[in-house]
Simulated scan of single mutants.
Amino acid sequence: MVAGLLVGAVLCAAAEPDAPRVAPGATEAHRDALARYGAALWNLRRERLLTAARQLEAAARADPDATEPLKQLARLYAQLGREPDAIRTARKVIAADPSDYDTAALLARLLCDAGELKEAVAAAKLAAESKALAEKPADAVRVYRDLARLCERANDLAAAESALRKAIEMVTEQRAAVIAAFAFTPKEADGEAADCLERLGHVLVKRAKYPLAAEAFAAAAKLYADPRAAKTRPAPPASTGTCPARSRPRAIPPAPSSTSKRS
Results as ranks from 00 to 15, higher is better:
E57L: 15
R75L: 11
L126S: 13
R88M: 05
L70M: 09
L107Q: 11
Q72Y: 07
L147K: 04
L111V: 10
K92C: 06
A74D: 02
A58T: 01
S162G: 01
R88S: 14
A95H: 00
E68T: 08
D85E: 15
A123L: 07
E57K: 07
D100M: 07
A66R: 01
L76A: 08
P98L: 06
L73S: 04
L70E: 04
R88I: 03
A74E: 02
E161V: 00
Q72E: 13
D139C: 04
E161A: 02
R145H: 13
E161Q: 10
R91N: 09
E116S: 15
A138I: 03
E129A: 15
G81L: 00
A132Y: 14
D97I: 05
D97L: 02
P64D: 12
L73M: 08
R61F: 01
E83H: 09
A127M: 10
A95Q: 09
V141L: 04
R109C: 11
E161D: 02
L76T: 05
R165N: 08
E129N: 10
S162P: 01
D146H: 12
I94L: 10
L117F: 07
L164E: 08
L73T: 03
A86S: 05
D113W: 00
T89C: 11
A78C: 10
E57G: 04
D85V: 00
R149C: 06
K118F: 08
L164F: 05
T103D: 04
L73A: 03
T103F: 11
D113L: 13
A60I: 09
A62I: 09
D139G: 03
T103G: 06
C112Y: 03
E68Y: 13
Y77P: 00
E116H: 13
A86N: 04
S130G: 11
D65A: 15
A159L: 10
A74Q: 01
L117S: 03
R149Q: 15
A127W: 03
L147M: 07
Y101W: 13
A123W: 03
Y144W: 07
D146Q: 11
L117H: 09
A105L: 15
A132H: 12
E83I: 12
L157M: 12
A138R: 13
E119F: 12
A132S: 15
L70S: 09
A95D: 08
A154P: 11
A154C: 14
E116V: 08
D85N: 15
R142G: 11
L150C: 07
L147A: 06
P137Y: 09
E68F: 14
A108T: 00
K71D: 07
A158D: 09
I87G: 07
L80F: 10
A128W: 02
K71T: 14
A154R: 11
P84T: 12
Y77C: 05
A140L: 04
A59F: 01
E68P: 02
K131G: 15
A160F: 01
A123G: 12
E57W: 06
V121D: 05
C151P: 01
R153D: 03
D85C: 04
S99W: 00
T103S: 07
R82H: 14
L164R: 05
E135G: 13
C112N: 07
